[in-house]
Design a protein around this nucleic acid. Sequence first.
DNA 1: TGGGTTGGTAAGTCATGGCTTAAGGTTAGT
DNA 2: ACTAACCTTAAGCCATGACTTACCAACCCA
Lengths: 122, 122
Amino acid sequence: MTYQPKLTALADPTRRAILERLRHGAMPVGKLAAGFDVTRPAVSQHLRILQEAGLVRSRREGTHNFYSVDAAGLDELRRYLDQFWTDALAAFRAESERAATPRAHSPGRSVRARKGKKHGKR
Amino acid sequence: MTYQPKLTALADPTRRAILERLRHGAMPVGKLAAGFDVTRPAVSQHLRILQEAGLVRSRREGTHNFYSVDAAGLDELRRYLDQFWTDALAAFRAESERAATPRAHSPGRSVRARKGKKHGKR
DNA sequence: TGGGTTGGTAAGTCATGGCTTAAGGTTAGT
DNA sequence: ACTAACCTTAAGCCATGACTTACCAACCCA
């Protein structure tokens, strides 16, 4: 549901690199930006997107702005994939079983191509 | 390492919708496309991207092309997030501890932000 | 062999978003 | 208060990619 911003955030390589750098602890923007080939404003913008996605959090300390990974936000996405994976695996097993059951009908055509579809149109 | 295509694939809402529809079992392209407000060629293109990312697999059966979720590919991503999450959580705990320990070394050394300009153009 | 399905490919259009430079806004030090 | 450091916001440029229509290839069944 709210996975959209998280996934879009993770799709960008620079943002993933940022997360990798924050992976083991908080860091101010300047230090963070020093490791990249993009300018600091660009990093700032990425951090904004990451924060709105709930993947990082920020904490002010003087003029420094420390960013760190938001484990809770990551966990949401983690659970989503977990569940999705579980379902997909179950579906795969079910299908394998059906294919591995030879007695019933020959493997010639296990598919009953139902037609007469009412196209959902656009 | 190879997460880029998977994450880019998941970032698109239509592609996620496709995966959701395949979540509980395989389906031919036509039937799949019938549920969307985009044309079948668009769905075909999305499926190609999903397949190259290792998130779906296809199986031909006559003129029908059945697509299904590739649990193994999903698992890769799942593990990645899992690990990332673990690290981030550990970092968070470590930081909390440090903050909760009033004694010992003071936070004076927080940032040694010494320059570090060198922008690598682009 | 020809017609009717089913699905992928090609070419072109248009919006999205990631980057840059320039400017604004806080905070700390002297 | 002035100055310097740190970071964010604004405005604009340009490549990427998600869609469309049109076309083509493979397969099944009479």
